[in-house]
């Protein structure tokens, strides 16, 4: 494995995270917050919903990656358990946030018909892609968490963040990247 891609994976830049967010159809205002071109979003229900919708869009994308890997049997036997667990986590995150959005009268985004994942021919490629999505999700949640106004959603987002970091750490370990 070449050093440069490994280094890029180790320290993903904000524009990379923003690119993933855009590919998942995250609203431009939230992408601005993620890439640092927007300091803060205006307070209010619209912002809460924009953050929720962005998070749901990223969860749809993560589920699609794990679905693809599991369906095509690309995860090695020793890692299938992690993939299944992480897919389950993302389903839970999606459902939780869809419920919060609907409780507030919002209409959460549906998954896209297709996600750009590249060829994904090997377990290594798949795990690298899964890691990129997890890193993007973790960075996105971290970027938007202080914009959340309500206690219930802030608490949910905090626990979701804990899961994203676990996923990321496991895949980094599998790929032989630094974890501490």
């Amino acid at each position: 494995m070449a050093d440069r891609p490994r280094e890029r994976l180790a320290v993903p830049r904000r524009d990379f995270v923003a690119r993933i967010a855009r590919a998942a159809a995250v609203a431009p205002a939230v992408v601005g917050l993620i890439e640092g071109s927007v300091e803060a979003l205006p307070k209010g229900q619209d912002t809460d919903l924009a953050v929720l919708f962005a998070a749901i869009a990223l969860e749809h994308q993560a589920i699609a990656v794990y679905d693809q890997g599991l369906k095509r049997d690309l995860f090695p036997p020793g890692l299938k358990g992690y993939a299944t667990e992480f897919r389950g986590d993302h389903l839970g995150h999606r459902d939780t946030q869809v419920a919060i959005a609907e409780e507030r009268g919002g209409r959460p985004p549906a998954p896209l018909g297709r996600y750009e994942m590249g060829a994904l021919r090997t377990a290594d490629e798949l795990i690298r892609h899964a890691l990129l999505i997890e890193v993007a999700a973790e960075r996105a949640y971290q970027a938007v968490v202080s914009q959340i106004r309500t206690k219930d959603y802030l608490l949910s987002a905090a626990f979701i963040l804990v899961d994203e970091v676990r996923h990321m750490t496991v895949w980094r370990r599998v790929l032989g990247l630094k974890i501490y």
Binding site: E138, Q142, A158, L161, V162, V165, R166, M168, T169, V170, I179, Y180
Partner: peptide, 10 residues
């Protein structure tokens, strides 16, 4: 929280 979650995962 992110750093401590990483420690927990390790």
């Amino acid at each position: 929280l992110v750093e401590l979650s990483r420690h927990l995962a390790v």
